[in-house]
């Protein structure tokens, strides 16, 4: 079953003795449902990774970093997990995130999606969906609302959208909230 897009799965392992980009490794690319599941079954669950590691799933041709021309004007919907949620929720939420991307759950707004990242961190893990244009309010909000629904988050819970340009300057201002 062909996917709308070819996707690249990346792995980042923090090694401070090397420059950031040398710690980023392409695992594989796939463009069918079957190859997605084959990849998924052969890699470690996110919750089993060590702190400082990331997985990133991006459309083929987009590097999983702010500096990429398709990312630099964009931003991310950010889901921050409490420490105790690594074992109860992280793997399910990351799988739901990937299914939203490869299944094009955001319909025509899916073209705004660049990728998604899961960060494994001691202080609390994070999952984010990256979109290409932070000023495209209609798409950003649609993606955020659908994403939150697919994650099964409580209506009382909120997730925030941050522009990469703000994150890069260490600001954590939410541009949008759903």
């Amino acid at each position: 079953h062909p996917l709308q897009n070819r996707w690249a799965l990346w792995f980042f392992k923090n090694d401070s003795s090397r420059v950031w980009q040398d710690n980023l490794h392409l695992i594989t690319k796939f463009d069918t449902v079957e190859d997605f599941w084959s990849t998924y079954s052969h890699i470690q669950q996110a919750s089993k990774l060590s702190s400082g590691c990331d997985y990133a799933l991006f459309k083929d041709g987009i590097q999983p970093m702010w500096e990429d021309s398709r990312n630099k004007r964009g931003g991310r919907w950010l889901v921050s997990l409490a420490k105790h949620q690594r074992h109860s929720k992280l793997d399910r939420l990351w799988l739901e995130t990937m299914l939203c991307l490869i299944g094009e759950s955001f319909e025509e707004h899916s073209r705004e999606v660049c990728g998604a990242v899961v960060n494994i961190r001691t202080k609390g893990d994070k999952i984010s969906v990256w979109t290409q244009e932070a000023e495209n309010q209609a798409s950003v909000l649609h993606i955020g609302q659908v994403y939150k629904e697919h994650l099964g988050l409580s209506t009382k819970a909120t997730i925030g959208y941050q522009a990469h340009a703000d994150t890069a300057t260490k600001s954590t201002r939410n541009k949008f909230v759903v």
């Binding site: 996917l3 709308q4 449902v33 599941w37 299914l99 490869i102 299944g103 094009e104 025509e108």
Partner: peptide, 18 residues
């Protein structure tokens, strides 16, 4: 062109099919 959209249920079923 037409966008290829798969819902969660379909994707999960594909996981279990041989």
């Amino acid at each position: 062109g037409t966008r290829i959209i798969y819902d969660r249920k379909f994707l999960m079923e594909c996981r279990n099919s041989p």
